[in-house]
Design a binder for these strands. Structure first.
Lengths: 165, 165
DNA sequence: GCTTAAAAATTTAAGCTTGAAATATCGTAT
DNA sequence: ATACGATATTTCAAGCTTAAATTTTTAAGC
């Protein structure tokens, strides 16, 4: 079923059975394909990058505002990365950065009116694109995939403190 | 089951049921967590980046060498990216870049002896790390996840030509 | 009030990534 | 032999990302 547009999976070069590595590579390939398509569509139709959308989405969910540290934790990226993306969004007036009333070190980041309006339209398109990309799976398949990824997520969280070899 | 080290999922800010978006975010979160751990371990224990490892893995699988374009297709990244990563590996003498005997525009990239030796050790560690990270799933879960991701991959490939809204 | 460790954020250097432009080469048609 | 479209790669600008260093501020202890 691999037609001309079939997606190749990354390979690690080993010939012996490496089912875990193959599972990981398939996970990575699926995620990468979806992510690149989203990025392309965000850029083409809205002139926005995925990281900026992620920041706006986090702020949309927290209308009272968030600190840089909270954004870093919510988005699973470093503080330096958050600083850079936030500054770009502020430059373009999608968000505002205000000093924290209670901590002189911190800032409170919020969506502006312009930011909220832009985000609403982009979020709707985002949903539609995701729906389309997952449309080829049955509802049962999507549910099963969601549950299995949930198990993986829990397992990875428990992993956190494990020693490395 | 969300302990202190539980991994938060990214959110898109909507309160209505958006199961496809939640599935996508869970996929993204799992992939991101594994990828970041691999990157950290590669850097800490071998002083190498994941993209460089990817290039070496592709070349290990193709001892006769590959062109830049083949690397780009194999690794699902742009030509410009391949150029940059390949040049860095060549600088460090892990790979060699030779003019193609049949096409003056192209180059043939191969692992050097040093590159092969380094890659062998790193690849082994890579397998172990992946095995450990996926160890929390049962064999049946891993098989089911692999198959479901396969269905998703096929579906995404068929997506390729679909019109956007 | 002073000292110190910790916290919050910014800055920095290095690497990765894309898409487009530029350059050199190839293959085909005339 | 020449012209032209296509191909392969490099270069470039812009953005993202990390980890570490730095700066500013806070909180705790004395």
């Amino acid at each position: 079923m691999t037609g001309a547009t079939a997606i190749r999976e990354k390979h690690d070069g080993e010939m012996v059975d490496r089912s875990n590595v193959r599972l990981w590579l398939r996970l990575l390939t699926c995620t990468t394909v979806i992510e690149k398509r989203l990025k392309r569509r965000f850029a083409d139709q809205y002139g926005i990058t995925l990281p900026r959308f992620d920041v706006m989405a986090a702020l949309d969910r927290n209308p009272a505002g968030m600190t840089m540290g909270q954004l870093s934790q919510e988005l699973l990226v470093s503080n330096g990365n958050v600083t850079g993306v936030v500054q770009t969004l502020a430059r373009d007036n999608y968000i505002s950065i205000a000093p924290s009333p209670t901590d002189g070190r911190a800032s409170i980041v919020r969506l502006t009116q312009l930011g909220r309006e832009c985000f609403a339209g982009i979020a709707e398109a985002h949903h539609e694109w995701i729906d389309m990309m997952l449309d080829g799976l049955t509802r049962d398949q999507r549910t099963a995939l969601y549950d299995l990824l949930g198990a993986l997520k829990v397992s990875l969280a428990e992993d956190k403190g494990k020693e490395q070899p």
